[in-house]
Simulated scan of single mutants.
Amino acid sequence: MEKFPPIDTTYFYTYECVEPYNKFFYRTIEEIKMTSTSIYCLLRYGLKSDPDVVKDEYTFVTINRKSGTVEEFSIPCESGMTPIGYGLKDDMQEKIQPFLFFKKKAHYGVRVFGL
């Protein structure tokens, strides 16, 4: 805690209140979707102050709304692929899947993960 900057009360109740602390947090929820049975999150492991999608790691988290059990899966990026973005695909029928938008050589593609 001693490394944290002092609290600035002028930022209370504003979006800027977290700005001085961003460099200390390495895990953020990038996207969230819900169904009647589960909550789905796309987590990013990387400093928010350094928005470099290429070197960050992403995971897909499923939380069962009834039992509270949590499952987390790493979203892989194959050798030769340069990640451009990640997201959650919703088929509007209680199925949420993570996807990766990537570049490989001179081609672009989207890979949907069927977990």
Results as ranks from 00 to 15, higher is better:
3 K>H: 01
5 P>H: 03
5 P>R: 02
6 P>V: 10
6 P>A: 09
8 D>W: 09
9 T>E: 12
9 T>P: 12
9 T>C: 12
12 F>R: 12
12 F>C: 03
13 Y>C: 02
14 T>H: 04
17 C>K: 12
17 C>A: 14
18 V>S: 07
19 E>H: 09
20 P>C: 02
21 Y>H: 08
22 N>R: 15
22 N>K: 15
22 N>Y: 13
23 K>N: 13
23 K>S: 14
24 F>I: 13
25 F>R: 07
26 Y>M: 15
27 R>H: 11
27 R>G: 02
27 R>W: 11
27 R>T: 15
28 T>I: 02
29 I>V: 09
30 E>Q: 09
30 E>S: 09
31 E>R: 15
31 E>D: 11
31 E>H: 11
32 I>D: 03
33 K>G: 06
33 K>C: 08
34 M>A: 15
34 M>T: 15
35 T>H: 06
35 T>C: 03
36 S>Y: 01
37 T>Y: 08
38 S>N: 14
38 S>E: 14
39 I>G: 00
41 C>N: 06
41 C>W: 01
41 C>F: 13
41 C>P: 04
43 L>T: 09
44 R>Q: 11
45 Y>S: 12
47 L>F: 12
48 K>A: 12
51 P>L: 01
51 P>N: 12
52 D>S: 04
53 V>H: 08
54 V>A: 08
54 V>N: 00
56 D>F: 01
57 E>R: 10
57 E>V: 06
58 Y>P: 05
58 Y>T: 00
59 T>K: 10
60 F>A: 08
60 F>M: 11
61 V>S: 01
62 T>I: 02
63 I>M: 07
63 I>K: 10
63 I>T: 01
65 R>M: 05
66 K>R: 09
66 K>V: 08
66 K>D: 12
67 S>P: 03
67 S>A: 00
70 V>C: 10
70 V>S: 03
70 V>Y: 05
71 E>H: 11
73 F>H: 14
73 F>E: 12
73 F>C: 10
74 S>H: 10
74 S>R: 03
75 I>R: 04
77 C>M: 01
77 C>T: 15
78 E>C: 04
79 S>M: 06
80 G>R: 08
81 M>D: 15
82 T>Q: 13
82 T>A: 01
83 P>I: 00
84 I>V: 06
84 I>Y: 03
85 G>Y: 03
87 G>V: 06
88 L>C: 05
89 K>H: 14
89 K>D: 12
89 K>R: 06
91 D>T: 04
92 M>H: 15
93 Q>F: 08
93 Q>T: 07
94 E>L: 08
94 E>T: 08
94 E>W: 00
95 K>M: 09
96 I>R: 07
96 I>V: 14
96 I>Q: 05
97 Q>A: 13
97 Q>L: 10
98 P>R: 02
99 F>L: 11
100 L>M: 07
101 F>A: 06
101 F>T: 02
101 F>M: 07
103 K>H: 01
103 K>W: 01
104 K>C: 12
105 K>H: 13
107 H>Q: 13
107 H>A: 13
108 Y>L: 14
108 Y>T: 04
108 Y>Q: 06
109 G>D: 02
110 V>A: 01
110 V>F: 03
111 R>F: 14
111 R>Y: 12
111 R>D: 10
112 V>P: 00
